[in-house]
Design a protein around this nucleic acid. Structure first.
Length: 673
DNA sequence: GTTAGGG
DNA sequence: CCCTAAC
């Protein structure tokens, strides 16, 4: 995709032409003017689902091609090109669109339920269901139950997910096809839709497809597991929703590269997620990206924030609210991503979240000896299957860095937050104090009924877990898994910040939480009743420490900073497309009208505030004034930088003219004198 | 709530 | 990006 060069700088006609600033520049002093301002256009997405948005956008684009949008004539060329792209890409996007349409229409709404159960299903689950005759009759129930469970997972997963399917991911060019055609041409496109809305999931450059094994870690695992497994019992990472012992169902466990700092509950886990996100991955969030009802998210956030590591010395209570919002966004953005034809991918990702220990890869040697009264069961787990790894890494990255990245990812998973679950006869064995004999393990049939699963080492408060009757561990397999985001060591970003495109995402959670980005998110339409949602959500609002097994790890996170400490927003570098949109808007509106710029060009980019835009402009001006060698980050086309300087100069001049506070007349008089 | 500017 | 003063 080539950067769409603007016709010429002559377009830089902040005041010229008939199609320029639709409103006279508002002097800084004329603040009152604000009251007169009105939103140039209602946020398209306010009440629309992603699909509607797409349709709208497509239509607009086509219209644009015919220059029917006078107000945006300056952007018409780009828009026209974009429209063309839309047509061309239609076919290749067909597949995704189908999925998307399907989801939306089926659910008759853009809620979190837009994703279909089957899409959500991890392969392992289906396999498991098929394998276990007893489980089959309950397949349907299991499905819905799993969905519910999956929803409950959201709170712990959305962060990483949203991160993974971020606009930046798309903009980074790491995605398939020419989806880039959308954004590269999209100065004004931002008026119409959020990058997320045209999101086409970038296929991971590396995907082990659940087949990769990690023999090298076999020993490590073996040390922790001294029990044989049956060929059938293991369906992979399974978490029982009603499993008191299983604190992991409530949340995912993002592995960290540090392999430490584990917390026994999801609350802590959230914190970790947040930290992790902050550390390695920008998350998409914005205060307006709300997707949860209060009932479902407030408790969660309230608890979460308790554990947040404060990085600021002081924050206003106002910030606290923003914190909530951010969390909601993560989920919402993730959900939106799913709803845009990524169902399939998401489903696979979701599946990836399942730590499988399948027959083939989780093989085990078994032998039993009864030399004394105490029979010993010896077994050797030859290997554990490693969950599907999804890696995003720049094309420019070296093979070596790729290896390193993958290694880090795997290491993070295995060394980080894993624990083992034991299943016997399809039921999870929760009582760790129970002897094998007591548990009935060690019988001749053990090979057929014993299984292990790798689980995230996070806990949740049992008391908040919904007491689902179905305790079959198969049902709970849908709980997602630890996420790990490891940035390649050779990350170009400085200050420990990592470019999104370089993030490594493991087991992104597949949860469709539609409408998040819009206020309509609160309208729980579709089949997911508010009750259900809230119920599930509550399940992941663990507060208590709880898991004795993880108790030792709890202490780490007992830093009780003032709850009103929000988290610093994650850095989200501006893409070239965004920069162009910004430049275009500023050219027209001038500096000092950031709110208008925001509304005009970034109305749908919820994560960009006008302050962000102002700041970006500031940095752009600076960037443009330094030598290319001194610039960092994604290179901004010189042409854009030139326009930045031109616009900056122009508007500075304009501002200077008004500065004397002297009316034209007076000014003239002054000149005369 | 916005804008401007320092951090 | 954050924070804050000044509107």
């Amino acid at each position: 995709m080539v950067f769409q060069k603007r016709p010429s700088s002559s377009e830089m006609e902040p005041c010229g032409g008939g199609q320029v600033a639709e409103m006279p520049r508002v002097p800084k002093s004329a603040r009152g003017k604000r009251s007169v301002r009105k939103k140039e256009a209602p946020s398209p997405g306010q009440m629309m689902c992603a699909f509607d948005l797409l349709a709208t956008v497509a239509g607009k684009l086509l219209d644009e091609g015919e220059g029917s949008l006078g107000n945006m004539s300056a952007g018409a060329p780009a828009m026209a090109a974009c429209a063309k792209d839309v047509r061309v890409k239609q076919e290749q996007c067909d597949e995704e669109m189908k999925h998307f349409k399907h989801d939306v229409t089926d659910q008759d709404s853009c809620n979190e339920s837009a994703i279909l159960p089957h899409n959500l299903f991890p392969r392992s689950v289906n396999h498991a269901l098929n394998e276990d005759p007893k489980a089959k009759p309950d397949a349907q129930d299991k499905e819905s139950s799993m969905i519910s469970c999956a929803k409950a997972e959201l709170g712990c997963n959305f962060g990483a997910i949203a991160d993974r399917w971020s606009p930046e991911s798309v903009e980074s060019g790491a995605f398939t096809g020419d989806a880039a055609g959308f954004h590269k041409n999209a100065p004004d496109l931002y008026n119409l839709l959020d990058p997320m809305d045209v999101d086409v999931k970038p296929p991971p450059l590396v995907s082990s497809d659940s087949t990769g094994e990690m023999p090298s870690y076999g020993d490590k695992i073996r040390r922790s597991i001294s029990l044989p497994r049956g060929p059938k019992g293991v369906a992979g990472y399974a978490v029982d929703r009603d499993d008191d012992d299983d604190k992991s169902s409530g949340c995912t466990h993002p592995s960290t590269s540090t392999n430490r700092d584990f917390r026994p509950n999801c609350t802590a886990e959230h914190s970790r997620v947040r930290k992790l996100l902050r550390k390695v991955a920008p998350a998409r969030m914005h205060k307006s990206d709300l997707s949860y009802s209060d009932i479902e998210r407030k408790p969660s956030f309230r608890n979460k924030k308790m554990h947040y590591t404060r990085q600021r010395t002081q924050r206003s209570t106002f910030k606290r609210r923003k914190l909530f919002d951010r969390h909601a966004v993560l989920a919402s953005e993730f959900g939106r991503a799913n709803g845009k034809g990524n169902t399939k991918v998401a489903g696979r990702d979701y599946h990836a979240a399942t730590f499988e220990a399948n027959k083939g890869t989780n093989s085990m040697a078994f032998q039993k000896s009864c030399a004394s009264n105490d029979c010993h069961v010896k077994l050797r787990i030859k290997s554990f299957k490693v969950p599907e790894l999804l890696v995003e890494i720049p094309e420019s990255a070296t093979v070596g860095s790729l290896k390193k990245t993958v290694l880090e990812a795997v290491t993070a998973i295995l060394g980080g937050g894993l624990r083992v679950g034991v299943h016997h006869h399809g039921k999870k064995v929760r009582d760790d104090s129970k002897t094998l004999i007591q548990a009935g393990i060690g019988q001749d049939d053990m090979l057929d009924n014993l299984g292990f699963s790798l689980e995230p080492n996070c806990t949740r408060n049992p008391s908040q877990v919904q007491a689902t009757e179905d305790t079959s561990f198969l049902e709970t397999i849908d709980t997602t898994e630890p996420l790990a985001r490891i940035a390649p060591a050779d990350s170009s970003s400085k200050h420990g910040e990592v470019d999104v495109s370089q993030e490594l995402a493991l087991t992104p959670f597949a949860m469709n939480y539609q409408g998040s980005d819009h206020d309509s998110a609160h309208s729980h339409g579709g089949f997911s009743s508010p009750d259900k949602v809230s119920t599930n959500s509550r399940a992941l609002v663990p507060v208590s420490p709880a898991d004795p097994n993880a108790g030792a790890l709890v202490t780490v996170n007992k830093s009780k900073r003032s709850p009103e400490q929000g988290q610093r927003r994650i850095r989200r570098p501006f893409s070239v497309a965004e920069v162009e949109a910004l430049v275009l808007a500023v050219e027209k509106l001038g500096t000092g009208r950031w709110r208008d710029v925001k509304l005009r060009a970034f109305d749908n980019a919820k994560h960009r505030t006008y302050v962000d835009l102002k700041d970006k402009w500031k940095t752009l001006v600076h960037t443009a004034s330094i030598s290319p060698q001194q610039r960092r980050g994604e290179p901004v086309p010189q042409e854009l930088l030139d326009r930045v300087l031109a616009a900056q100069a122009y508007w500075s001049q304009q501002q200077a003219k008004l500065q004397p506070k002297t009316p034209p007349l007076a000014e003239a008089r002054l000149l005369i004198t």
